[in-house]
Amino acid sequence: MEMLHYDFMQRAFLAGALIALVASALGVYLMLRRQALMADMLSHVSLAGIAAGAYLHWNPTLTGFAIAIVGAVAVEYVRRSYKTYSEISVAIIMVGGLSSAVIIMNLDQSVNKSFSSYLFGSVVAVNRTELILMLAVSVLAALFFILMRRPLYQMTFDEDTAKTSGLPVHWLSLAFSVVTGMIVAAAMPIVGVLLVSSLVVLPAALAIRLASSFAAAIMLSMAFGLGGVWSGLAASYTFSTPPGATIALILLAILLVGIGLKKAMLQAAKRRSRLGIASAPDTPFEATRFTSAVRAAEKGESRG
């Protein structure tokens, strides 16, 4: 616990915990909405904002944050044009964002040189602005996920049935995209542009396979995310490895071990079922019994 004596490590653990919790909860919704690559796309788009901020001598963190939100809203509108193939919208916006970033970086070579911290993350060097931003985003995102959990569940399962049951799916989906953009932008200092999707996708990928309910999937994903980030930071401090990449590798290891354990449990369950534990059969629709009884009574009356 020697590492926790340092201010920069305390900040890293706090920032990591905040983002791990909201990013991994977000991941469950993104995966189930078939938008797993959205985090990756938004991180690349926000690179254009960071480059523009650095070139214009504005705060790159804030410009990256703003452009990530703009990208999230844009992808929501493009997604509606390609409803069946929503991944096309991700590709279109990513090309626009990344190519803009490369051109802006090329305008000023000094901007280009300071980019490695954005690409690979520098959680131990999180500054005060970034920490405040992370805290604000985490509080807003947590409120959104808690207050909107029921509409989000319905929209995530199926947008059409959510619409017919009276939900304002258009606005809810737009708000979800904005929250996604905010979380991705705030997560970038932790694992960097190139690995931000690891924080969003990997904990959710395992939680979805293991959870027995939707609420459990969210909680498990948050637990895996937090565990991965904290153990990644500790391993990075101990072995002097880059924190972003270490966190991503540990999250990957958690996913692989979890999938392996799940498979082993399934094999054991199959063995048990061979020993005679069968699955429960269907029971008939209740109206069958109800109507048959009514008809039998009617027949009895008519005969009588």
């Binding site: 029921r150 979805i208 309910s213 939707f214 999937a217």
Partner: peptide
Amino acid sequence: GFPSSILEFVRSGRYT
């Protein structure tokens, strides 16, 4: 593949 129990899923019909 939706990670939901049947009870939770059917209960969601009451959310509106």
